[in-house]
Each structure stands twice: as C-alpha cells, then as structure tokens.
Design a protein around this nucleic acid. Structure first.
Length: 589
DNA sequence: GCCGTTTTCGGCCCGACTGTTTTCAGTCG
C-alpha cells in the first residue's frame, strides 16, 4: 500500500510550497495528502486498473498530482519532491511538529542558521541565536525550547479509550464553575475516532474571560489532586480561547462562546475538517455564510443556537457527529433533503445493547468468576451474557478442552439457577486452525448456545490462504460468530491479509455473524469494514472481549465504532432481546 | 493545483491568538 508514503510526500510538498508563496497550490497538495491518508483502496491498485484516468476520479487529485502518483508507482520517486528537498534539506515532518513553527519560519531558520532538524534547532535556541533573528524574539525562543521537549516526548495521538475518562473528569470540574452555562466535548473525540490528537471543549458563558482564567488556574493549581488532570503548559490564553497541554501529554483547546452561537460553534469544532469545508461551501452556494458564530444571510444571523438549526438553515437534515468525515454523509443528507427516504442511517444508539457476547472468565484467561461477571452484566441491565472462554488451542490462555467445557456448562447451569433477571449463555471462543478447522470437537460445539471462532496464531499467511481459512470457518455450521475478523491492533498491527469481499459473501450465505470487537486496543472490524458489511447485508454483533468486570464499559467504544460504520440497530444482533437473539441462530444448524 | 447545477477561468472555509511590530504575518485548528 503506497497511499501513506505518497501522503507523506504530498504533505511535505505542501509545506515546501508554503515556504515561498501563499498559494492554493499548497492547499491542493494538503488536500490530496489527506485524501490519500484516509483512502481505503490501494492507490496502486487503482492506478493499475485504470491508469491516471482512474486516479483523477479520486477527489482532490487532478492532472498534476495523478502524474506524480504514477511517477512514484513506476520509479519509487517524485522528482518535484526531491528537487524541493534538495533546495531546503530539512526534516519537515519533525520540525513542523514543534508548536509555533510553520513552513515560513522553518525556512528562515534554515537559511539564516542552517537548522535542518530538531537537534540543530535545540542547539541554536540554547545558544540564543534564534532570538536574534528578525521576526523572532525572546519569547519565541523560549517557546521553541519548551515545544522541543514535547516533541521529544513523542506520541501525538492517543487511544480514545485512554483520553475519554480524563476529558470527562475535566468537563465535570469545569461544570462546577458558576460562569459555565453549557459545556460539550467537540473535535475528533466527539466524533469518537479511534485515536485522537487533541481535545476540544466548548463552553457557553456570558463571562468568557472568567471561564478561561478559571480553567487555566484550576488545572495548574497545586491543589488539583494528585493523579487528576493537570496542565503542564499554556500555549495560548486569550479572552475567548485557551490552548493548553495536559500532563497526560495531550493538547486541549477550550473555547467559550455566547449561548446563541453554541450550535454553530459545536458544529464547527466537531469537524471533521473536510466535512466542514464542504458544509461551508454548500452554505456559500446558497448565499449564506457559516462560521463558528452562526449562519448568516448578509449581516443577519439566521441560525446558530443548536446544531440541528445550523444544518437546517443550509438545507440539510441533522448529521450525527460520528458520521462527519466527508465520506458520503453530506451527499446522503442532500439526497434526503430532496425527499429521498433513508439516505442517512438511523444509527444504533448507545443504550440499544441487550447483551454481551464475548466474555472470558477465570476458567481461561479472565480474572473473574462466572458469577461475578453475571452480576456485573446484570447491573448494566443486560438480559444475557455469553461466557466464551478460550479453547485448548490457545494454551497460553489456559484454553478449555472438551471435558472442561462440559464441566463449565454445568457450572453455568448452577449460576443460572441462583440468578434472576439475567441469563448466562454457554459459549466458547474457539480457534480457527491453519486449515480452517476448529480445535474443539463438533459434538461439544453442538451443545453450546453460541460458538465464537477466531484466528489466534499464524497471523501472517498470504491473502488467498487466509481468506480460505476464514471462509472455511464461516461455512462451518457450528460457528455462529467470527471474532476480531482482521486481527488488527490499533496503530500496532495492520491486521491480516484477506479478501474481505469474499468473506462477506460467505458470511451472508452461511448466516455467520461478524464481530465488532470493542476492545480498546482492537476495534476490529474497522468503520469502513462495518460499512461494507452493512451494505452486503451481513449481520454483526458487538463484543467487548471482556477479561474483567471493568471491561464492560468498552461496549461504548464498540457502539461508537459501529455508528461510524453507518450501522443501524437492526444490523446488530445483540440489540435483540434474548429470545430474538437465540432465534437468529436456531435455523442456522 | 483542483474543480465545475456560475464548467476551461476564477474562485478556493473562516477566525482566534501570539509575538513582534506599530498594522500584521504566521500559525493553528
């Protein structure tokens, strides 16, 4: 997949252009880079199937950039990029990460001081050379030195699961302020992206400066309890906006607006960038102006109080935050506005889940007893919980063999008798062996209510073999659900090679369900795959891959992922009541 | 450089904050 390599090159070309001119050329390269960054199809495939003509069909890619993509695929190089790099041989990717440094300043630093990378930058700043330059000063130099430390500390994206609890803490504390009226999280965290770079918080108040002041004081105060969120650096602090870094390593923007602008501001700060650009274009075409304060007709404000009103004012139905990625949701909204029904999905809700389908007890590698897990599930309000311990092929997880599965079934019967208000279902998470067969005998699988199966070893197979392996499991009448279908780990492991279209075909034909694994490090299926599955008519189920009682809360992430995949309640099996859930699998065998 | 229900030219989303300068460029989101 050459998409990301090309995206990196185009991002840098954009910066190089920016050094010399305020131009729309650099914007075009940025746009192309962003598009490639999130393009699900392999750009090389597209090229090989349809040449530059096909490339030009990708939004944001025209004649010139298509040629450069072609050049890269053919020669592994982009001459324009190499020429620019030669003229100004700096490590743009790292230097632009330094807060406050952009293309222009980086060029000055290179021309005047020969700074090429972070090391040079730190050296010159420490010697006081930077403050002597025109356009820089004492403060810039000090800020650069601090910013370098943050870049060195690395990490600029965080798992949504690790960020959300902290953000909720921050929001709860801000709510205590008497000047705060409304408050909401915005940005990619509101869209529930798998990973987020920074956090946006939006507040309404009549005394914005007071709120900003209190915010900064509140979280830098030594009184702020040990372990709670603490601000480690204030990047900016104005009358309505402040930008800070928390000790946990992420940046946070707080923005205060008047309540009549809350909707417009929330819409704006929720993004995504591409979604907003298109929305504003639509507004403009209608002779309106959309900014974070409202929708304006001339000087007259016609909307802004809430998001619904903002979308309405430009002629669109409300679009859920998780959908705002400019991947077809605006086109769907436009069609819906023209009277076509059900163009935007009616997304599954966060309270639609009726049971947990993926749960490990202390019989294998979980830490809790079946009874403890059942009590937790009941407390959430679930109607059922499927116990799905690992099986013998996974010795490292103390997997169960046939005899232990049978013993565990008896134990579950016992717990079921002692508990009211929740039903424990018997299951397992079996292993799909290299040849696609299962590591537990059919006659035992037959006795279980729900059988999950997944690939847990030999993850690196070629595409054809892995596809066959998984399809064989899908065709196995004893298998109900394929878990973590791609085996990916967020930002760590890309997931195995397989022909997902074939897999979907087989799943549909055999009525086999695919899991959306909600585990914080997995989130597998990905949103684009969920969308493909929904379109193919394949049923899905969200599983939290529970290993302890505090894992139940991961379901929220799974639902978010599911929403980003355009799935509705009807697509997700564990939104069904116990009876309907079991009914689905009955006629499978 | 891209794009087109103003289609081959002339637009391109829009505003806050900072630092260094005295009216604004650069950066960021």
């Amino acid at each position: 997949m050459k998409n990301l390599e090309l995206a990196r090159i185009f991002y840098q070309i954009a910066e190089f252009i920016e050094m010399d001119e305020v131009s729309f050329r650099s914007r075009a390269y940025n746009k192309a880079a962003r598009v490639l960054d999130s393009l699900e199809k392999d750009v090389q495939d597209i090229y090989q199937k349809g040449g530059t003509k096909a490339l030009k069909k990708i939004p944001g890619i025209g004649e010139a950039i298509a040629k450069k993509i072609e050049e890269f695929i053919k020669t592994g190089k982009v001459k324009t990029y190499q020429r620019l790099k030669k003229q100004c041989p700096v490590d743009l990717e790292t230097l632009t990460m330094v807060e406050g440094l952009g293309a222009r300043k980086i060029k000055i630093l290179y021309k005047k001081l020969g700074i090429r990378n972070l090391k040079d930058l730190e050296k010159e700043a420490k010697m006081g050379k930077i403050s002597e330059l025109e356009g820089f000063g004492e403060k810039s130099e000090k800020n650069i030195l601090q910013a370098i430390q943050f870049v060195k500390a690395g990490q600029n994206r965080f798992l949504i699961s690790s960020i959300l609890p902290i953000v909720r803490q921050i929001i709860n504390q801000l709510k205590e302020l008497p000047q705060v009226y409304k408050i909401s999280i915005a940005g990619s965290a509101r869209r529930m992206k798998e990973t987020v770079g920074d956090i946006d918080i939006l507040v309404t108040s009549n005394k914005p400066d007071k709120v900003i002041d209190s915010f900064v004081k509140m979280f830098t105060s030594p009184k702020q309890s040990e372990g709670g969120p603490r601000i480690s650096k204030v990047w900016a602090k104005g009358p309505t906006k402040s930008s800070v870094r928390f000790r946990a390593g992420f940046d946070c923007d707080l923005r205060v607006v008047k309540k009549e602008s809350f909707g417009a501001a929330l819409q704006y700060f929720t993004g995504s960038k591409d979604h907003n650009i298109l929305i504003r274009k639509i507004a403009k075409k209608k002779g309106l102006k959309l900014n974070e304060y409202g929708v304006f007709k001339g000087k007259k404000k016609i909307a802004g109080k809430n998001e619904k009103e903002v979308y309405q004012a430009i002629g669109l139905p409300y679009i859920e935050p998780e959908l705002r990625t400019n991947t077809g949701e605006i086109e769907a909204a436009l069609r819906q506005a023209q009277g076509k029904l059900n163009q935007l999905p009616k997304l599954i809700n966060y309270n639609d889940i009726k049971g947990e389908i993926h749960c490990h007890s202390n019989w294998s590698d979980g830490s809790r007893t079946i009874n403890e897990l059942a009590l937790s599930a009941k407390k959430i309000g679930y109607q059922y919980l499927v116990i799905t311990d690992h099986t013998k092929g996974l010795t490292i997880a103390n997997g169960l063999d046939e005899a232990r599965i049978l013993r565990q079934m008896k134990e579950i019967d016992k717990v079921n008798k002692s508990l009211k208000g929740i039903k424990i279902l018997k299951g397992c998470e079996a292993n799909i062996k290299v040849d696609g067969t299962i590591d537990i005998k059919d006659e035992v699988l037959d006795k279980l209510d729900i059988v999950l199966a997944g690939v847990h070893f030999r993850l690196k197979m070629d595409k054809k073999d892995m596809t066959e392996r998984i399809i064989k499991a899908i065709e196995n009448p004893h298998i109900d659900i394929i878990v973590h279908p791609f085996g990916r780990l967020i930002d760590k492991r890309p997931g195995y090679q397989m022909d997902f279209k074939q897999v979907l075909k087989a799943a549909k034909k055999n009525k086999t369900v695919l899991e959306i694994n909600a585990h914080t490090s997995r989130l597998d299926l990905r949103d684009i795959n969920i969308r493909q599955a929904v379109e193919a008519g394949v049923k899905l189920a969200i599983g939290s891959d529970i290993h302890s009682v505090n894992c139940f809360q991961m379901m929220e992430l799974g639902i978010a992922q599911t929403r980003r995949g355009w799935a509705e309640k009807k697509d997700i099996l564990n939104t069904r009541t116990l009876t309907n859930f079991l009914e689905f699998f009955k006629d499978k065998e």
